[in-house]
């Protein structure tokens, strides 16, 4: 008698299963998926920019294509062993640091406890060592060398490698067109840009593409450019 009652109770417990309300979760995920698919850009070129550069915003419709990347990075703070350390601003070509600016800006303590320390950008001139600049202060010599090397690299590859088209037929590679993408912080002054463009033109890079963050099409004033990019 006693045993049979216990048996019946345990049987009931088995039947009462816990079920997750999956349908609502599915709804949510599908909405998220549709949103992501809509905002997914199908660009053939994987493009990256530095997180230390605040790009200016522009309403221009063109998207980037292929070319060499040159970044003008302002001085910023990096954390080393838990201590803030100043990293000087630099010109970076294809991920390689070419030349550093001589400015030594102050590290400002954070205004709020959670935020990282920032760099005092006031008075930063993006100055270069005078012995590294030629042609009456117009040509940045290390940048000229680096650009020439990059150009020679492309030409060497064109000469020595065989190129095939989509059907496997041998074909001529596209000629070197000298496209240079310039990622510059919005605080950079024109005098530095002019030096960079002069140097690039001398190294036979004749098409400059200025990289900007795309402005949203609203009547509201543009917010500061987002800092993170992929």
């Amino acid at each position: 008698m006693n045993r049979s009652i216990l048996k019946r109770r345990s049987r009931k417990k088995v039947r009462k299963e816990f079920e997750l309300p999956l349908t609502s979760m599915m709804d949510m995920l599908i909405i998220l998926l549709v949103f992501l698919l809509k905002s997914y850009s199908t660009s053939a070129v994987a493009f990256s920019t530095s997180s230390n550069i605040a790009l200016p915003t522009s309403a221009t419709p063109e998207a980037p294509t292929e070319g060499m990347n040159l970044m003008v990075e302002p001085a910023h703070v990096t954390m080393k062993n838990g201590k803030p350390e100043l990293e000087l601003g630099a010109i970076i070509l294809e991920g390689q640091k070419v030349i550093e600016f001589t400015d030594q800006p102050q590290i400002l303590p954070p205004t709020k406890p959670d935020e990282p320390p920032t760099v005092d950008q006031a008075g930063v001139k993006y100055a270069l060592q005078p012995q590294l600049v030629g042609d009456d202060g117009r040509r940045i010599l290390p940048l000229f060398d680096a650009l020439t090397k990059e150009k020679e690299k492309v030409e060497y590859i064109h000469k020595t490698q065989k190129f095939v088209d989509a059907n496997g037929q041998p074909t001529e590679p596209k000629p070197f067109n000298g496209t240079l993408f310039i990622h510059a912080d919005k605080a950079v002054q024109y005098q530095l840009l002019r030096k960079i463009m002069y140097t690039a033109a001398a190294a036979e890079f004749r098409i400059f593409k200025l990289i900007t963050a795309r402005k949203e099409e609203t009547s509201a004033p543009p917010p500061d450019a987002p800092k993170k990019g992929t």
């Binding site: 221009t60 998207a63 593409k209 900007t212 990019g229």
Partner: peptide, 25 residues
């Protein structure tokens, strides 16, 4: 499948739309 897809899209999505301005020398 959906969770995998969503995480893939989130990982590969560009957070910032980038535009270019052409200026020939």
């Amino acid at each position: 499948a959906l969770v995998t897809l969503v995480s893939f899209l989130l990982m590969t999505m560009g957070y910032m739309a980038i535009a270019v301005i052409d200026t020939p020398a």
